[in-house]
Design a protein around this nucleic acid. Sequence first.
RNA 1: GUGGGCGUAGCUCAGUCGGUUAGAGCGCCAGGUUGUGGCCCUGGAGGUCGCCGGUUCAAUUCCGGUCGCUCACCCCA
Length: 424
Amino acid sequence: MAFQSLPGFRDFFPAEHAARRHIQSAWRGTAERYAFEEYDGPPLEPLELYIEKSGQEIVDQLYAFEDKGGRQVALRPEMTPTLARMVGEHGRALPKPIRWFSMPQLFRYERAQRGRLREHFQWNVDVIGEPDITADVEVLSVALDGLTALGLGPADVVARVNDRRLLESLLLGAGVPRDRLGGAYAAIDKMSREDAERTKQRLREDAGLGPDVVDAVLALFAEDLAGLRSIHGGDAAVAAEVDRLESYFTLLDEMGWSRHVEFDPRIVRGLAYYTGTVFEIFDRKGELRAICGGGRYDDLLSAVSDLQLPAVGFGMGDVVLGELLRERGLLPTSAPSPDYYVVTITEGERPLLRRLARALRGEGRSVSYTLRQVGVGKQFKDANARGASEVIVLGPDEVTAGVAVVRTMKDGTERRVELTELGA
RNA sequence: GUGGGCGUAGCUCAGUCGGUUAGAGCGCCAGGUUGUGGCCCUGGAGGUCGCCGGUUCAAUUCCGGUCGCUCACCCCA
């Protein structure tokens, strides 16, 4: 009886692990170029941390159980509550704004399907302690540069952005009662995936809006930012929010992202704690689920700690992103190959092989060889199979002369190199 | 949770209108090749044909169930 991995969980064989590492290296490198610091927290947290902080959707899909001490615990389904807790603990002592990132493995209990597993790695980047829109810009810029580092440009991906404060002012202006906003958000969030009739139905039945209010709400989504200003600009609350979003776009443009970002009032995000700007990044063809989602959550820290700090951040998962990159041929398909492969003609050169290999490794080069002395042809076959760039041949003749033959595998050229030059 | 598709070698898949010993390509191992890889040639290992039951002289094949994978729906980090 052979074992299998659990449904929705992945094995990372060397080729797949190389792909994962490629993605994570790009994430880490990008975050560090933006001078963000890496942190991590426990994969297991008190269940309570997620109840009513993350939204019902996430709570329903928690990997939760009771531990041997009788505690209700959950595998983390997202990183933000952990981040909020950690910042709440030591945030007072940290210079503001806090610029942190993490690449946690997250879990959720749900039927696995394309682009959606029970486990994934998610790049989280957050700016905490800065209410200004410049922080929102910084965060979205990191996300887009992460994708850029992986070879995805404006022809491949697009960030659709919105602001819940704008949406709120528009909905209130359209006659939606304040206590029905949540239901309206849920219906709007689904708009781009459903037909107009279904949306209407949701606004009426789920959000409990009257027919004229529903029509007023639907009319909002026919407009771009300028249209919203000219029609609803008389509403001071709307005008202020349009101003803010416009400056958001201006700053993004200054950073060079004008071709990557679009206004989309239907972007709401499912999570309960977003309070301001929200965005999602999609593949341009619209074939896949969202690659990345984020936004501003100014009240979450006060909900899980006694600190009150505004915050903005995003999460980008490796699953959908990996699918897109694989489609575009932007992922490595094999593990890294050795720089050198050492071949010995006879057993007599093995002591030299061991010394030479260690010396080269001491200089940071990767070195492989057959562990036992076998035929020279076999050693070369193995060097080839493992993709070695260069083979160092040690034979009695060369060793006597204090040299080695170095063969470049891709074109078969050989040259003689002094052993001392190789570090042996 | 609902519905569809698929389970044959490590991988991708043929095949069997029910019949003796189940195949290919790739991969792996060995040899051709004891001072030179890729290409080529030869040989080899590797299968309870997902599992359980039924029908039958005979089931990998037909039927029922079950488990698993997968896609879609629901929902959405």
